[in-house]
């Protein structure tokens, strides 16, 4: 059986798609057969971040409507043969998703895949609800600012009450906190909530902190998941997160401001 991971946040623009792409790539690079599904029907982005937008023929909605088979719609990643992308439809809207349709697709994927990463749209409406409904694990992506934290809290409430696991009285969804766009420097200046502040409000297991980094934007524009950029802070942070999720004991990084060494002074670090 596959493990279904939903990457969610409530608020938009916090880095859900970036995280979905990075986590899926990270799991696949470690040899686990992984599928990543874009639930953001009508505003599809995942294929851009994954760099496969020119190879989309069929999409998630085609599969749900049985206009295409799952194998026709899945796009195999060129960089890693364990990774497949199921893109969203750009010409439809969230109402095209159905609970049964999503369930069938996930069931079929579960037969052959080890991990299924669901990239949730922003909001708490139908698309976000269906993305998390079947999940086993939830990665809650939060930015260190009050609106994002509040929305994540709302999302956590929905995860614990409106998922399949909640409705069938099974073990609840395992919830993990990913704090993205974190800048220790701005935390020290008092411009940003600290890890501790966010932890106190959400009381959630912290899976990792992703530092604010120029490399995320560069990677997105280039269509390369940022985890492949091993030189960047963000890429290393995502590698740590994947390792921690798989049960390895990796110490947290990027939480405190690093002392600038001679090299970073010379080359500048962002």
């Amino acid at each position: 059986m596959a493990r279904i991971i939903v990457v969610t946040s409530g608020k938009g623009g916090v880095g859900k798609t970036t995280t979905s792409a990075a986590i899926a790539m990270g799991l696949a690079k470690r040899g686990h057969k992984t599928a990543v599904i874009d639930f953001d029907v009508g505003l599809r982005n995942l294929d851009l971040i994954m760099g496969c937008e020119r190879r989309v023929v069929y999409d998630f909605i085609n599969v749900i409507n049985e206009e295409a088979s799952l194998n026709q719609a899945l796009i195999k990643d060129k960089r890693c043969n364990q990774l497949y992308v199921l893109p969203a439809s750009q010409t439809r809207d969230k109402d095209a998703l159905t609970l049964e349709g999503v369930g069938q697709v996930l069931d079929e994927l579960s037969k052959t895949f080890k991990y299924i990463v669901c990239d949730s749209p922003a909001g708490i409406e139908k698309g976000a609800h269906l993305a998390m409904y079947y999940a086993d694990d939830a990665f809650v992506v939060t930015n260190p600012e009050v609106a994002s934290v509040r929305d994540s809290d709302r999302m956590l409430g929905i995860l614990s009450s409106k998922s399949r696991r909640a409705e069938q009285n099974k073990d609840p969804i395992k919830e993990y906190l990913l704090l993205s766009r974190y800048s220790p420097k701005r935390v020290n200046l008092g411009e940003m909530l600290s890890v501790d502040d966010v932890q106190e409000i959400l009381s959630l297991h912290l899976l990792g902190v992703i530092p604010e980094s120029q490399s995320v934007l560069n990677a997105s524009n280039a269509g390369t998941p940022v985890i492949l950029d091993e030189q960047s802070d963000a890429g290393r942070a995502y590698s740590d997160i994947v390792a921690r999720y798989l049960g390895e004991d990796v110490p947290h990084r990027f939480i405190y401001e690093e002392k600038k060494g001679i090299l970073s002074k010379l080359f500048g670090s962002k």
């Binding site: 509040r150 809290d153 956590l156 929905i158």
Partner: peptide
């Protein structure tokens, strides 16, 4: 008790965790 959730008790109510804003 997460943001957006509502809890109603006909008698007393005991919460062993936090009660979030909202």
């Amino acid at each position: 008790v997460r943001s957006g959730q509502r809890v109603y008790a006909h008698g007393d109510l005991i919460v062993l965790s936090q009660v979030s804003a909202g």
